[in-house]
């Protein structure tokens, strides 16, 4: 509980305006401000003296960043992808990386310095921050390997997507308050959810909540062509499916559940997406067959496997 003398509070309330002036706070010293004032702006304001090249940054990145962001900035699991994604911003699955999306290099320096590495924020030296920043820019083909990023060269970095941001112009959509004949009932399309993506552990069996919410049944059925909206992950997983999974899961050989045959997937989907993904990544001995780890495609990232699983499961609802 806060401890505050009530007399003081009453005094404060009477002292609105100039009379308040001497009562609150104390001057912040330059040293105190210097210790906390860490922010960097696009014009370079706030950058400390120092510098580093991508070449110097590579071993630091490998030691402190690659375990989450991947050696090439490709991202491990759901950790942020840092590189690539050029020209993807108008695609179905945009890849918003430092190179494809971030408008300012200063943001990278500021964020690495204030919040990275994830488990040890504000532990890097200023030179290390310059080095890692340079390396991430290098992974995005924005600077040369041996080019030194420092407080003076900083403004030379050109970020490809810098001019693509515009200030909020909402309200952008105008609806009207209609009461009768507001839509053509014959033209309405009803699309249900994808089974198996909602956490359902709290839907108790005696709660009256439909068992169809547990993930083993969606309100669709064979023979009824109801459109299923694929998740972003599933859409992203289609390419991996075509390349690595189709051979077995397209035909159902070796006991593999065949994509599109709902009955072969309902029980698997009911186990939850994470279990299916785990089995797909680590391998699984089922009643009808054996799923080798990653289907034998050990070059696939875990994320790619997970996306392919989403694609197969959602396409089989």
């Amino acid at each position: 509980m806060f401890k505050l003398p009530s007399a003081l509070m009453a005094a404060a309330l009477l002292c609105v305006g100039p009379a308040m002036a001497a009562d609150f706070g104390r001057p912040a010293t330059e040293a105190e401000i210097a210790g906390w004032d860490i922010d960097i702006r696009p014009d370079g304001q706030g950058l400390p003296v120092g510098g580093g090249t991508a070449e110097q940054g590579e071993p630091v990145y490998e030691a402190k960043c690659a375990m989450c962001h991947g050696s090439f900035g490709e991202g491990v699991d759901r950790w942020p992808v840092l590189a690539g994604g050029e020209d993807s911003l108008t695609e179905d699955k945009p890849e918003k990386t430092v190179g494809s999306y971030w408008p300012y290099a200063s943001t990278l320096w500021d964020y690495i310095h204030r919040a990275m590495p994830y488990t040890a924020p504000q532990s890097l030296t200023d030179d290390e921050v310059y080095q890692i920043t340079a390396y991430v820019l290098y992974l995005n083909d924005l600077v040369e390997y041996d080019w030194e990023l420092n407080q003076d060269t900083f403004v030379e970095v050109e970020m490809p997507n810098q001019d693509s941001f515009f200030v909020d112009n909402r309200p952008d959509v105008v609806n009207t308050r209609c009461f009768e004949n507001c839509a053509d009932p014959a033209a309405l399309q009803v699309v249900g959810t994808i089974g198996g993506v909602s956490p359902t552990g709290h839907f108790k069996e005696d709660s009256g909540v439909a068992s169809s919410h547990y993930g083993d049944d969606a309100p669709t059925d064979e023979g009824e062509a109801v459109a299923v909206a694929l998740s972003a992950d599933a859409i992203a997983g289609e390419a991996t499916y075509q390349q690595a999974c189709l051979a077995c899961h397209g035909s159902g050989i070796a006991g593999a559940p065949k994509v599109g045959v709902k009955d072969q997937w309902t029980q698997r989907v009911a186990q939850g997406l994470s279990t299916m993904v785990e089995h797909a990544i680590q391998g699984y001995q089922g009643e009808n067959g054996y799923m080798p780890p990653k289907g034998g495609h050990m070059n696939l990232s875990d994320e790619a496997v997970a996306q392919a699983v989403s694609f197969m499961a959602e396409s089989s609802q």
Partner: peptide
């Protein structure tokens, strides 16, 4: 001027179909 930190550039900006993005979408 604004600082354009991570949570107002990389995140919390709204990507539009033409590939451009809205920034400072506060409301």
């Amino acid at each position: 001027k604004p600082w354009y930190h991570r949570e107002e550039t990389s995140k919390y900006t709204d990507l539009m179909p033409d590939g451009r993005s809205r920034k400072f979408t506060f409301v």
